[in-house]
Design a protein around this nucleic acid. Structure first.
Length: 470
RNA sequence: GGCGACGUAGCCAAGUGGCAAGGCAGGGGCCUGCAAAGCCUUGAUUCCCGGGUUCGAAUCCCGGCGUCGCCUCCA
């Protein structure tokens, strides 16, 4: 499998440290607000990565952290007069429900920052011992960037250029160097109840140290893949590397996987533009998932509602294709006719499809291309079937259904999962069937309209009438 | 100022040296009791512009133009 590595800026062969095990750490949400569809894109792309590795029989251990303490959270709880836990658990739940709507497979661990203070303290102590961390007058602890020679290797940022651009933060007045970053922030009155009184002092962790602590605890060092949004490359991931590699003298992670941004109608999502969209603004989360699949993860994705509608239509046509396969399967099941080898032409289609699909995924997760093979399969199948519908037999469709089920373990579109029709619709369909037999088309058409109004499509096919959700 | 990305049909989007994937939308036709779905057909002689390398370039090189990101919290 080939994968782009931000660290080397090249597409490389993926070789895990200990085959078939793969450790992945992805920077998760800061639970101070609702996750927007940009955040969700990153998690979805990490899900693609994970599912692809699963598909190719790797044994994946995925860790996604939850940042449940930081400046913004503290500010918010002060304003709202609630406890840290009360505040963050609400947004944590929202995060979990959002990713579940997008059919993102759960990670193996979701460690919380506040539950790993000891692990952070351990690293900070080591850094102090090694003399790469120092204390300021207020007893905060900073990492001295100048002591780490490899600083900038991930983001390709030159330390000397960096200094020019950096604005000095007023409350960090006594840092030795403006680019140094906080490992431990000493307690101030405004922190309220949010502090840990530990041997390095009373205070709270800096942002970067939590990830270093948690990925080390769950995956060891080095581990295979570190993932996250593209904007985390600098400074977050650069700083994580600095801390972890300085403390332990070992590489932090071998591969760095970064997902590009999602923009909305050509603009960055931001509060000032009032264009922040969450999962609740999306009528059909599976269409959003398909939209994510249709753009390569390293390219910007311009989200528009027209685009979402287009994805929804595409999803419908895939749905119609798979439904057709199931209709045919059911038809022969009712006839008790399971006979037949797989037709040569169908077999060729299937092989071409799987080969194209898999090789696209192996090429740096080319999900848009992989998907194109599924549409090709649908087209080829219909062409074949249109020549003579009844030439397609039970074993042909059964074979194709199995293939689609298999690739859907990566796509996660639930293409072969159907929910039963509501009983009132089933009842209407029965009445319509009778009306049709009696050539009472007025009644039949009226019922069709009624069912459509309930959000379903009614279609008459050579294998009987079918009804699916629109 | 420093670092970097992108510009492919009406829209979205693959392709990074050998005849321009796929999706959505539109036109015409077939099928259908009518529909829906599907099929057929139609659409970039050309990949922002100008040069260059090459037998051959959307793809490599140089120079423009344009859009955007990061360098500050950020997925």
């Amino acid at each position: 499998m080939k994968i782009y590595n931000t660290l080397t800026a090249k597409i490389e062969d993926f070789v895990p440290i200990k085959h078939p095990f793969v450790g992945i750490y992805a920077c998760g949400p800061t639970v101070y607000d609702y996750p927007h569809i940009g955040n969700l894109r990153t998690f979805c792309c990490v899900d693609f990565l994970r599912r692809i590795l699963d598909y190719f029989s790797y044994d994946v251990k995925l860790v996604i952290n939850i940042t449940d303490v930081d400046d913004k959270i503290i500010k918010a709880i002060n304003q709202n007069g609630v406890s840290l836990k009360e505040y963050t658990s609400k947004y944590e739940e929202y995060f979990f429900s959002s990713i579940s709507k997008l059919n993102i497979k759960p990670a193996c661990f979701y460690p919380r920052a506040t539950e790993h203070i000891n692990e952070m303290v351990e690293i900070i102590k080591l850094l102090e011992q090694k003399g790469v961390a120092y204390r300021t007058e207020d007893n905060s602890i900073y990492f001295s960037v100048s002591r780490f020679n490899d600083y900038g290797k991930l983001s390709k940022i030159d330390k000397s250029n960096l200094k020019k651009g950096v604005r000095v933060d007023v409350d960090q007045y006594d840092k030795e160097d403006p680019v140094d970053f906080a490992l431990w922030k000493s307690y101030t009155q405004s922190d309220g109840d949010v502090f840990w009184d530990v041997e390095i002092g009373k205070g709270r962790p800096g942002w970067h140290i939590e990830c270093s602590a948690m990925n080390r605890k769950y995956l060891g060092q080095p581990f295979d893949i570190h993932a996250g949004g593209i904007d985390l490359i600098f400074p977050h991931h650069e700083n994580e590397i600095a801390q972890s590699e300085c403390a332990y003298g070992k590489t932090l992670a071998n591969y760095w996987f970064h997902v590009n941004h999602l923009i909305v109608e050509g603009q960055k999502m931001s509060k000032s533009l009032n264009n922040i969209l969450t999962i609740n603004d999306i009528s059909n989360p599976f269409a959003l998932r398909l939209l994510y699949l249709q753009t390569h993860y390293r390219n910007k994705l311009n989200f528009t509602f027209d685009g979402l509608r287009a994805a929804e239509n595409a999803l419908n046509s895939l749905d119609a294709f798979v439904k057709t396969l199931f209709d045919i399967k059911m038809y022969y099941e009712l006839e008790d006719n399971f006979d037949g080898n797989i037709n040569d032409e169908i077999d060729r289609m299937g092989k071409r499809f799987i080969h194209g699909f898999e090789s696209s995924l192996l090429d740096d997760l080319n999900t848009p291309k992989a998907l194109s093979y599924l549409f090709d399969l649908s087209g080829e199948f219909f062409v074949f079937m249109n020549k003579n519908p009844k030439i397609v037999k039970f074993s042909d469709v059964n074979y194709l259904i199995a293939l689609i089920e298999k690739v859907d373990s990566v796509l996660g579109l639930n293409l072969t999962v159907f929910t039963q029709l509501p009983s009132d619709i089933q009842e209407l369909l029965k009445i319509r069937k009778k009306a049709k037999l009696e050539k009472d088309y007025t009644t039949a058409d009226n019922i069709r309209v009624r069912i459509q109004e309930m959000g379903y499509v009614v279609e008459d096919t050579p294998w009987g009438t079918r009804c699916r959700r629109k």
